[in-house]
Each structure stands twice: as structure tokens, then as C-alpha cells.
Design a protein around this nucleic acid. Structure first.
Lengths: 226, 226
DNA sequence: CGAATAGTGTCTGTGAGACAATATGTG
DNA sequence: CACATATTGTCTCACAGACACTATTCG
């Protein structure tokens, strides 16, 4: 008895916060199918390569940045029979959260790459769906984990952390209550001792990411209409 | 340029609550590799078959039960190069939550099938890891979703629902506080109007699953040592 | 009635959210 | 000093958890 043959790819939902909004890294496809369309970065899993390894390799190739302080996790897999005209292709999607970084370099298969605000983007394949799943995952994870810090540089202010929440959730939070919550939740952030300088207003203390993996208690977003 | 060829399987973490504990459905393998070892039920994805379709088909084949009131969702994918000696096999694991049902019938590839309490089981392939991920997912989901009802028959009592939580989380909950919480959280359960009869003590009202997809506020478990 | 289980009421502590007040920089 | 931003304090309400109490059935 024989079984169908598949190709396996990894696709990346690479998110960052810039200009007050959540942005995703897209590449313009340089090969068929969907030549010229925008798509999530990704590529085939190689012989003898594990899935997380493939994801990290693609991330490095497409962004030129080896997960500098960011976060990478598996999102979900997609394998509808007609999702790729070349044949049966199952893609394992990964979600990456990165600090705001210079415009990425295009990879081998990609003619161009750029950050785009998340939304209805008309991407190649089933990438709109994958992006939507990734954004929803990121929104949820900010509630229960300290991952918002993955969007920040190694040292950051409480205000910067709050702006991450505001950008990802698309709602504004009270700076005073957020400050108290962030600094009092065990393991969320830890002070570096340093402060900002040169800006307007009182200097802010700097923090780095704490050692907790789960926020307790969580930081729940407002649930619209429930 | 050519790319590696994979086989794709779906494996199922099928959980139920029986005898006060969380149990997983295992099959004894009837073919190589790992002939005779216990493993999660699963099989190859067929030509022209979507991943959720394959998962539902395997669930029906291995349990003889077409998701009667239960719940099925994708868990994660596993694709280490050496996870299957036959070659590159990526498996997409699905998590199924079912009410307690009669002992399942063995499927085509399985010599036997039975419910086993979850724990360290020494399963074939990387199935111990997959099982652990599935159990952890189930534990988390009970906090934020009304999925505990997927472990119950269509109509159930609040006490039965509480026993699901106690079994999955492995801790005991105050029946009175749980009752108030379950009945006051919007969309968690809705009364059928009926009651139990014949048992000891006051009859309990019957409920069915509510229409909420997310519990608000959530029902948080005790976090050990955080 | 007594045992058993279902369901309600009350109290207390914690934390979220609204918002006043204070601290400490820059121009 | 005026202004801007950071940080702390106070008040109130909602809810979790502890637990007394009432309700309803069976034997």
C-alpha cells in the first residue's frame, strides 16, 4: 500500500510594532505560482532539517536577523489539497515577534520585502488566513504571557511596553494603571537601574524582560460585546 | 531545483474523563515500526484530503464515533528528521475531547485499543511528547472556553461539569463556588428545564452547553508556585 | 427523621479601572 | 516657571474563595 507524497514548507508570520501599529513582514514573490503577489516569507523544509530549524533558517534568510531578542513559536499547519497548484503542499506556519528593525533585506526567492500594517491584504495562497490566525494568536498571548517584551529592544520603558499592547490590541490603556500592573506582576519586567534621558518630561526607568513564562494574574483585554 | 519528499500523517490525542481521571485513547500497533507498542491513533493523509477531514476520518475509524457532541481541534505538528525510521514523516496532531463512551473498536492498523490514564506511558515515536502537549492544551482551554462540556453527554449536571474540571486539572474545587460561577458566566451553560432523578439527595437541574466560545471572565486554575 | 446532594447567601481579600496628586525632567 | 511625561496614591466595584445556611430528595 502506498501513500501520497507531499512537499512541506514553513511560512512565517513576522510581526512587529512600528508607528503605533502592528505590522507584518511580506515579500513579493519572485517565482511562480503567484509571481508578483505579496506573500508571507517562507520556503521548503530541507532534507534532515527539523521544523523549528527550518523556521529559524527562513527567518534569518528573509530578515537577516537571527531572532535578536524576539520570539518564535509554531502557529498551525495548513494543507488543503488545492492550496498550491504545484501539488500537495503542507505548510507549517510559525509566528515571530520582533522589535522594530530596519527594512529587511530581500531573500533569494523574494524580489522585495517590506513591513505592512496588518489587515485585509490579498496575499498569495491561503496566507490571509494564516496571517489572521497569527495576529489572533499574538493578541491572546499578550494577555497571558510576558511576550509583549519580544516586540521591544532589550531595554525598554513601561510606556514603550504599553504602546505595544495598544498597537496589538488596537485600544488605548490607562498609563497609570498599566504602569502599576506591569511593575507589580511578578516576573513580567525587572528594572535595569538605568533611565531614559533627553526626552520631554520626567525620565523613565528602564526595564528588561522578566523570567516569568506566564503572567499571573493575566492582563485581560476588554472583550467587545460579551 | 528539487525538494525533499514527505509523508504526512494525522495523529489524534483523544481524551475523555472516566473514573474521576483524564484518560487517553491508545492503540497497539499492528505494523512496523514499533510493532506491538502503544501509540496514539492516526494514519496517513490521503490524496485530495484536507487535514481536518483526515483527522475526522481517523477519529471515526478508530473510535467508531463521529464526534458525538465532542470537540476536535488542531494541536501542533511534529517533523523531526528521525521521528520515523521509514523516512521523512510530518505528523499534524489533533486534539479530541469526547464524553465517556464504551470501549472503542480497533481500527484497521491497530490490533487493540483502550483508554489509559494519562501520564508517562512510553509510547511509540514521539507520542509521549504529543500527548503531553495535548493534555496541557486541554488544561488551558478549560480555563478560557466552555469546552469542559465536550467531555459531558449532551445534557449534564453542574456537578458532572465540575468533576470534569477536577479530573483534568487534578485538583478539587468548591462545589458551591463552582456552581455559582458556572451558572453566572454568560453563555457557559443553559438550563434544559429537566432534572436528574433516582439518585441520593436533591435532584440536580440539567444543563446543556451554552453558546459562548470564550468564557468571560475566565475560570482560572490555581497556579502552583508562581 | 437522618443522610446526602443541590443550590443560595454572606463576608472578606485582591485586583481592575477611574482619576487625583506628586515627582522630575526640558525649554 | 510652564509643560510634558513618569510614578504613586486613593476610591470603588466586581469577583474569587471560604463557608454558613436552606432546599429537596431517598431510605
Amino acid at each position: 500500500m502506498t501513500y501520497p507524497v507531499f512537499a512541506v514548507t514553513v511560512d512565517l508570520v513576522v510581526l512587529t510594532v512600528r508607528e503605533g501599529g502592528l505590522h507584518v513582514l511580506l515579500v513579493r514573490r519572485g517565482i511562480e505560482p503567484h509571481l508578483g503577489a505579496w506573500a508571507l516569507p517562507g520556503g521548503f523544509v530541507l532534507e534532515d532539517e527539523d521544523l523549528p530549524t527550518a523556521a529559524r533558517r527562513e527567518l534569518a534568510e528573509e530578515t537577516g536577523l537571527a531572532g535578536a531578542g524576539g520570539h518564535l513559536e509554531q502557529l498551525a499547519s495548513y494543507g488543503a489539497p488545492d492550496r498550491d497548484p504545484r501539488g500537495r503542499v503542507v505548510t507549517v506556519a510559525y509566528l515571530a515577534l520582533l522589535p522594530d528593525l530596519p527594512v529587511p533585506t530581500a531573500g533569494t526567492d523574494a524580489a522585495e520585502a517590506e513591513w505592512r500594517p496588518v489587515g485585509k491584504l490579498g496575499l498569495a495562497f491561503d496566507h490571509d488566513r494564516i496571517l489572521a490566525d497569527g495576529v489572533e494568536r499574538a493578541r491572546s498571548k499578550l494577555e497571558y504571557t510576558p511576550l509583549a517584551a519580544a516586540f521591544c529592544p532589550p531595554e525598554f520603558t513601561i510606556a514603550a511596553l504599553r504602546q505595544v499592547y495598544e498597537a496589538v490590541w488596537g485600544e488605548s490603556l490607562d498609563p497609570r494603571n498599566f504602569h502599576r500592573k506591569a511593575t507589580s506582576t511578578p516576573g513580567f519586567v525587572s528594572p535595569t537601574g538605568g533611565s531614559t534621558e533627553g526626552g520631554a518630561g520626567r525620565p523613565a526607568r528602564l526595564y528588561r524582560r522578566g523570567d516569568a513564562t506566564l503572567l499571573n494574574p493575566p492582563l485581560l483585554r476588554r472583550r467587545p460585546g460579551e
